[in-house]
Every structure is written in structure tokens, then in C-alpha cells.
Design a protein around this nucleic acid. Structure first.
Lengths: 337, 337
DNA sequence: ACCGCATGTGATAACGTTGTCAATTCCAAT
DNA sequence: ATTGGAATTGACAACGTTATCACATGCGGT
């Protein structure tokens, strides 16, 4: 038998203490409808004295709002997602919401998908935040659509299908490529994964080179994990006409390039320049410290929660918001040898 | 006006379709009480046909259980916490629970503490998981005690105050120090933070040295962030009688030591051996790859959830569970020069 | 005097589920 | 036959909150 939870005061008790009706208390506490200054004061004093806390369940039962925001993450890890989550919790609670987290399979796992749908239907969150890579899964989006819960896709790599919050990935990739070109590089390669985000960043990479009339030295999109990235990097650096700089689609890939360069006796940045994306902890802690792109997670988290809690009321409201970035110049980019 | 959520079937509708009473449906679906095989079958068919999903709020309102587990994290980041959380979500849902995440201030911020208490009182979770460093905060623990919610402390550095799940930190520190001593080192230093976890690991460090009749080359507990750790490391490595090996209380500190060694022209592991704790991503991605201690997050997460959902019924049940570890030998430990 | 409207308050009925108790049937043991 | 209990089912009242409607009151303009 678990210890009985401390008894908590109900609205009824607050009402009795304040000498008003139950509804008046509800109105005062929710700032809905009218209440005289005197009553308001009495009710607030009584609530404070009794340590009254509303019961989410009773509040949600009539069906209006559940005060819950669900964040859907993938089973696989991501440091960026963790940071995002912490930022969102802060914004959630400022709006009086609570955050529940659930994870979903990314592949077309039928049973797993049904299970998430069941959990969300049970929980009836007022909104759902879909993190990458789930935000690009048609199955997940269809499920949410069918569920009828408003959702926001965070950092998706494709347009359409509801509101979207993300960074200007193409612009960021263009900026970091420009930074490398400005240092004097002409043979620049791109190393990415096979996902949508890498495709976006590759687009920015191309755009920067095109503007200068240059062609990419090489493009490889098979760097799907640290090992594969190391392999790709070695192939790239051992081949003929070695690039003098590499734009890596993530910090992790950039670290793999750093490692491969070391293995081949190349000095960074003297012999080879490298840049990544995401400004992860590892970027600052690597050797040499990695030049990368930083996104403002706080601002993006705020916008994400905002979309759910105060949804744009017009049908013609913007379908998403795109945020800027910051180039964090550390020590891995220098003029070519 | 947000789009109306899809109407979901209620128990009442299922009961009507199955031709039984509402309570029978409840009993069948919860596997509580008796039900004939025939009835069970009919009810289950009806529930499936209507896509019935229980409503958490209605379920929790009568006060028995909320089916919610709250995880309390600190505002500050931690990669290990993120991984732990993902593991726990999986175990939560296997037990039919949902996970809400909230963050709390670690210092004695009175207002912040009251706010967390209010949110938890509103949410009435069936259990609370307290992650480091909150699990060692007396204020937080007192608040939870007063709230009356059962809680489990994850990886606390002190005993007492309720159930506890953690790793054998002292044993791990002893093992990694033994590993270094076995390579032949005699001048070994310890570099840690000022927190409880570092203190625990320092204890294991001492224990290993004592067993061999050795004295620590140096002990520094001021490595509270990456910068400070770098400073400590430089002081340590530039001083007289430089240690030939450093046990760092975290991977992050170990990376700072690696960086400082590089700055001073020391080769790792030829001139200096280094080891860390936690087997973070950065440990595998560093150069050289860092020798570290890996903990089994999955097992620990399972035990944590288990403590909350199936609490030990005897008053004399164990107050916690301690898990083992694994020494991950990479490339930063070698015989001394 | 009367209406109309803004302001303030309360009574009552939901919301969907589970706990409790009562009712019924059936079968085995007296 | 009779008793006792297990098996099976249903009726009804909670749980704590908000929505809805109804009822006062006061006040400015006709």
C-alpha cells in the first residue's frame, strides 16, 4: 500500500472558506467572466491559504483543453533534440501547459505506429510537436491528421502538411560555404547523410558555389553514421585532386573528417579546412575546435509552443516560421595551402 | 477555432454495441474482476470495432491512479539524462504509463521550487523520477516528501531519503584506476568537479591506490566546466613531478585534459594516459578515442520505472539498486613513458 | 416608470471512468 | 433440500472542474 498522497484542497473548500459559490472561485482563478474586486481578493486569499492546486484531470474531463503538449521523438538519440526539449519545457510551463514525451518508430512499423496513436488518443494533448526525423514521415503525419490533434513539425526538410518551425538551413549552408570560399578555397567537397536535412544543406552548398561559378570538388551522401562518415572521408581525402575544404552536413560528420585527416597525416586547418552544423558540445570540445553553425533553440522552441498554444486564427496565416543562424568561427577554417 | 478533434468512442458506446453494461466493459478491458469468456470476446470485438481508447482524465479523476510518471530534470544540459529519458519512455509505455518531463532549478530558488511543486500537485503523477543533480538537493527531496508522491532518485551521490537507482560509482572508479595501475603507472592524478558524483569516484580512486600502497600524485576538484577543467589540467601538467596518468571524473573533463596535453606538446597515450566516465558520444569521437566507463542505461531505466510502478511491498525491501559497469578500453591508456 | 445592458453571482448538469454494493445464477458440499 | 460461496453482471454514486442557464443588481437613457 503506497503512502496516501497529501490531501489537496478542492475548489469547493476554497469556496466555503471565501464564502462564495464554487463557480465564482473558478471564474476568479481562471480570470474568466466578471468578479468584483472584493470577491476576487477574498477568493485569492482563501486559495493561497489552503494551498489550492487545480486538478488537471477534472479540468480536462469536460473536454475543452487537456493542458498537455506532447513531444514526439524518435527512439534514436539526438543531442539537439534534448536541448530543444529543455527549452520547450520552459515555454510550456510559462503558458500553463505540461509536456509529455513519447517516442515513435521511424520506419513503417505498423504495430508501433498504432501504439503511438493509441497513446495519443488516450492522452488527448492540446498539441503535438513532431521532432526530426519523424516530422518527415508521411505515416506519422497521416496518423496525426487522422487523430485530429493540432501539430507542429520541428525542423522538417520538406514543406506542406501543417505548420512548421525550422531554421534557414539553405541559407546557413550557403553562409558557411561562403565563409570557406572567402578564405580562398576553390576545391570544396560536401559530405552528408541520405536524409532530408542533408539535402537542404547540400542545396545551400551548391548555391554558394554557383554564385562564384565554381563546381563542387566532390559530393558524398553516404555518411550515415560515424563509421560510414570516416570511410567516406578517407575515400575523399585519399582520392586524386584532394579537396582543400570539406563542408560536413553535421558536426558528427565533421569530427569524422577531422579523424580521417589525422589518420592521413593532414593538418587541420593548414592542409584541410572543415566545417559542420549544429554547434554541438562535441564541436567546441574537438581538436581543433570546429567551425560550425549555431541555431537559436530557445527562439525556435518558443515559436513552436506558440504555434500550438496560440494558433494563428486566420486560415491564411503563415504556415511556418523560419529562423536565422549564427556562424561560429573556431579553428578549422583557414586559407588553403 | 481549432479543428474539432475526432470523436472517440466511450465505454458507454462500447457497452451498447456489446449488449452489456458499462461496468462489464470496464472490467473486461482492465482485466479486473470476473467476466465470462463469451462476454469478454463480445466486449473486445466491440471495443476494437469502435476503436475505443480510454480517456486518461476520466480514469484518473476518481483518484486512484493518474498513469503519469514525471521526470524531473535540471535546466542544465546532460547527454546522459537525455539517453536515460529515452530508455525510460520505452519502459513507461510497456507498463501503460505516460511520461511527463519537468525541469526544476537546482539552487535554492524559492519561487522556482514552489512552481514545480504546484505543477506536480496539479499533475498528481503516480511517481517521480529525480535526475542528477536534483536528486541530491535537500529542498527538492523535502518538497517531494511533502507532496506525498512516491519518487526514485536516479544516480544520487548520497544514501538515504527513499529508493535509489544508480551505478557502482566507487567500484567503477576503482576499476578504471586499477586498469591504469596495471599498465604500470605510479604517479596518477584525479581531476573532478565539486559535486557528489566526483566525490564518489574520488573515493574509488583512493581505494585503488591504497590497495597498492600508493599515494595520489594530485587531486583537484575545481574542474566545474570545460574551461575550468582545462585550467586545472594545465596547472597539473605544468607542475613539478607531472603525473603520468589522469583519472578524470567525467568524459568532458577528460577531453579538457586531452586538449591541455596537446597544448603542451604531450602525446597521449605515449606521454600521458587519460580516462573518463560515462562513455559519452564525445568519448568515442575524440582523438585519441577515450578510455571510459560505460553504464547500462537501459537496465537502470527499467529498474527506475519498476520501483515506481511495482513498488517493493515490504517495509524492509531494499531501498535501492546498484548496477554494474563496463570498462571501455580505447586508446588513451598505455604504459607510462 | 420603463427598458436595455453591463456587471456580478449561484444552481445544476455534464464530462468518462471506476469503486461499491447489490442481485442473480450456478455448483459443490453438507 | 439447504447452505455457502464463487462466478457473473448491473445500478448508482462518486471524482473536481467547467459550461450553461438563470437570476439579481445598478445605472443611464428614453
Amino acid at each position: 500500500m503506497r503512502p496516501k498522497a497529501a490531501d489537496r484542497a478542492t475548489i469547493k473548500e476554497v469556496a466555503a472558506r471565501a464564502g462564495v459559490s464554487l463557480m465564482t472561485v473558478s471564474r476568479v482563478l481562471n480570470r474568466t467572466g466578471y468578479a468584483s474586486a472584493q470577491t476576487r481578493e477574498r477568493v485569492e486569499a482563501a486559495a493561497a491559504a489552503l494551498g489550492y492546486r487545480p486538478n488537471v484531470f477534472a479540468r480536462a474531463l469536460p473536454g475543452a483543453r487537456s493542458f498537455l503538449v506532447a513531444t514526439l521523438i524518435n527512439d534514436a538519440a539526438s543531442a539537439a533534440t534534448a536541448e530543444l526539449q529543455r527549452c520547450m519545457i520552459v515555454h510550456c510551463r510559462q503558458a500553463g501547459y505540461h509536456m509529455v514525451v513519447d517516442s515513435a518508430p521511424i520506419d513503417g512499423d505498423e504495430a508501433g505506429l498504432r501504439a503511438v496513436a493509441a497513446r495519443l488518443a488516450t492522452l488527448r494533448p492540446d498539441g503535438v510537436i513532431v521532432c526530426p526525423p519523424l516530422c518527415d514521415s508521411p505515416e506519422i503525419l497521416a496518423m496525426l491528421e487522422q487523430l485530429g490533434a493540432p501539430f507542429v513539425r520541428f525542423s522538417p526538410s520538406r514543406m506542406g502538411e501543417g505548420p512548421r518551425v525550422g531554421a534557414d538551413e539553405i541559407g546557413a549552408a550557403r553562409a558557411i560555404t561562403d565563409h570557406i570560399l572567402a578564405a580562398g578555397h576553390r576545391r570544396v567537397a560536401f559530405l552528408g547523410r541520405g536524409d532530408g536535412l542533408s539535402a537542404l544543406r547540400l542545396e545551400g552548398f551548391h548555391s554558394a558555389l554557383d554564385a562564384k561559378g565554381l563546381a563542387p570538388a566532390a559530393i558524398d551522401s553516404a555518411a550515415n553514421d560515424f563509421e560510414a562518415a570516416g570511410l567516406c572521408a578517407r575515400i575523399l581525402l585519399e582520392g586524386p585532386k584532394r579537396p582543400t575544404a570539406v563542408v560536413a552536413a553535421t558536426d558528427e560528420i565533421a569530427l569524422a573528417v577531422l579523424d580521417a585527416a589525422r589518420g592521413l597525416g593532414l593538418k587541420v586547418p593548414a592542409d584541410l579546412s572543415v566545417a559542420g552544423f549544429g554547434d554541438s558540445d562535441a564541436a567546441a570540445l574537438s581538436f581543433p575546435p570546429l567551425t560550425s553553425i549555431r541555431y537559436s533553440m530557445t527562439a525556435m522552441a518558443a515559436a513552436t509552443i506558440g504555434f500550438l498554444i496560440n494558433p494563428p486564427n486566420s486560415a491564411h496565416a503563415p504556415l511556418g516560421r523560419t529562423f536565422g543562424f549564427e556562424l561560429v568561427s573556431r579553428s578549422t577554417v583557414a586559407p588553403p595551402p
